[in-house]
């Protein structure tokens, strides 16, 4: 394989590993669709930050997008609690609105924003090797470094928050009864999901983010009964999807992101099938 291929695969694998970790908790907390909503809702933030800063790698971009991710979850809360709209509809109304706003902004400023509608959906992972950054006297793809940094952050977060996340996902009421500040924990977790979404957005696009958050974790949950094995397996499935996806995309000459999701989906459905066909113990 060429070095370019490796760059793409490793970037995909790092992002898949980060999302698999966070996604495991999203799945266990039954908040998968909230992740879906956030991944759509960061779009207007990204576009506005683009317009203001005029470049793509800027902290402003990060802040803008992370802000709109949190804004989306606040909007959902507001519609649900204060306007008394049922929860599923609050999610649906909020994210479609924000996403439509993002698309309109993109089309209104076509010349100025280096984003197009398709890139929003399935990213530009194929261009990873083109976006090089000087690193001493070697050149590495910038998205690869971003993905590596993201993975590091998520890993550290997992190490320090493992017990808290476990407790919060299993029994939030009990956590609160222990005097643990569940609101803070919840907010931090949502902020991590937003951050991951934003960093991964331009590399893999909105849809792949949702898929990578949910599908490997769901597949791993089918196979395991303990939390650490579940997370490890989810990460493994994510990485595997990155490899398989690259291969499939080169054969079909199609979108790498789409192929990665398809491989993840294939793993999910075969797991489902195997689980159904093998008789259960107990």
């Amino acid at each position: 394989m060429t070095i370019e291929a490796w760059y793409i695969i490793i970037t995909g694998a790092l992002i898949a590993a980060s999302t698999a970790i966070l996604g495991s908790f999203l799945v266990l907390r039954k908040m998968a669709m909230l992740g879906d909503a956030i991944s759509h809702a960061v779009l207007p933030g990204i576009v506005v930050a683009f317009l203001l800063s005029g470049e793509r790698d800027s902290t402003l971009l990060l802040i803008g997008a992370a802000f709109s991710g949190l804004l989306a979850s606040l909007l959902i809360e507001l519609l649900h609690r204060k306007a008394r709209l049922q929860e599923d509809a609050s999610i649906g109304v909020s994210f479609t609105w924000l996403f439509a706003m993002g698309v309109l902004l993109i089309s209104a400023y076509t010349g100025q924003v280096d984003l197009d509608q398709e890139c929003v959906l399935y990213g530009e992972i194929a261009y990873v090797p083109l976006d090089l950054m000087a690193f001493g006297n070697t050149y590495l793809p910038r998205p690869l470094l971003v993905a590596a940094l993201l993975f590091l952050i998520v890993l550290l977060y997992l190490l320090f928050s493992f017990k808290g996340l476990k407790l919060m996902s299993f029994n939030p009421d009990f956590a609160q009864s222990l005097g643990i500040r569940t609101q803070v924990w919840h907010f931090t977790f949502m902020a991590m999901v937003s951050l991951t979404t934003v960093l991964a957005f331009e590399i893999v696009g909105a849809i792949l983010i949702v898929a990578l958050l949910v599908v490997p974790a769901a597949t791993a949950f089918l196979w395991t009964r303990a939390l650490i094995p579940m997370i490890v397996l989810a990460v493994f499935i994510g990485v595997l999807s990155s490899f398989g996806g690259y291969g499939l995309a080169s054969v079909l000459k199609g979108s790498i992101a789409g192929a990665m999701v398809s491989v993840a989906g294939l793993l999910f459905f075969s797991s489902l099938l195997i689980k159904l066909l093998t008789p259960k113990k107990n």
């Binding site: 266990l28 039954k30 320090f160 928050s161 017990k163 808290g164 476990k166 407790l167 996902s169 299993f170 029994n171 009421d173 009990f174 956590a175 222990l178 005097g179 643990i180 500040r181 949950f221 395991t224 009964r225 303990a226 939390l227 094995p229 579940m230």
Partner: peptide
């Protein structure tokens, strides 16, 4: 019934939660 018992944890892990405090959570 307020919790989902399909949650991936062992008996020991759940009982250990009784010893969790703000101070030792990390």
């Amino acid at each position: 019934e307020s919790v989902d018992w399909t949650f991936p944890a062992s008996v020991r892990e759940v009982v250990e939660m009784g010893r969790y405090r703000n101070a030792n959570l990390m």
